[in-house]
Amino acid sequence: MKNKKAFEIQFNWIFVLIAGAAILIFFSSVIIKQKGITQSSTNIEMLKQMENIVSGAGVSTGTIVPLNIPNFDIKISCNKISVGYSSIQYQSMVLFAPLSIKGGRIITQTLAFNEPYRSANLLFITSVQAKYILIGDALMTEANKTLPSELDKEAFNIYDPSKIRNTNNYRAKLVFFNANVPSEVPSSLAKMQDSGVMAIKVTGRIEKGTVDFYKKSGNAFTLSESSAYLGKSSMIAAIYAENPEMYNCNMNNVFSRNRLVTQVYQGKARNLMANTARPDCRQVYSDSLPYLNRIESSSSRLSQAQRIDISDINDISSASISLESQNAEAQKLSCPMIY
């Protein structure tokens, strides 16, 4: 009888333990699931904010907007923005930024791509915790004036590694304008992770030139890829872009937009030709069509190129100059302007 009592008591306790454990497991799983849902909805909320920023960039141009955001790790890649496991995919996004944006404060900047008419707005985003070191000639001065003052940036006319300080940034980018990239990384930045330090060499003028992208391998800079730029906005884009892949991908999208807008201007030039009675105006529009055709075909090639080629850039640049002179001629003759 005593054994039976003892067995019943033990059995009761075991039963209570199992029931209690089941209740705890149930509530723990509810809490973990709810935490995951809340985290996902917060990530999506952040993505919506980024989507609004990208949309707003298409509307406004020449703006600099500092923003305070929650301390998320935002990942940006070609045509994609991710926060945690949530992401938005675009068909043709134009956004130049580091691969990872950290910190609670970001700077957004927009510049118009006017080659020779406005066809796209380039959006640049970076964190205030990223450092930009600009070295070079008059081109450096122009770039420094264009970059926001809120950025953590330093400008030097001559490269002196002893003047470059490590201010505990997660990312540092050295930009050399018409100056050679040194083979050695400055000693103050040598201990940073390889992915956190990069350099670019900009060679040319404000209108066009080439860009060489370098990456840090240990204590040395090694050339990873060369590309080209057209106009100030794409030169600034090379400064913001994390790597040549991001730069080339976004420039493909820019030239895709340029191709479409050029097709519209080709149609407008033909409409103007058909609708004007004046032979001198018709001549101007007729002369402008070959230049528009050249811009359209070069933009089409660049929209699909793996790398932005300097020969196509030169083609667009020279056609743009000729088209501008035709547009000025139309203005002089009091004809409706092409653009």
Partner: peptide, 29 residues
């Protein structure tokens, strides 16, 4: 907003764009 500010439709004269304006010759193209 994107539709209103499309470069394909927006009025422009000598690179200066005009907001809330559509160029009829560009529109057809």
């Amino acid at each position: 907003q994107r539709a209103m500010f499309l470069p394909e439709l927006q009025c422009s004269k000598n690179k200066i764009t005009t907001d809330n304006c559509i160029d009829l010759l560009k529109l057809e193209a």
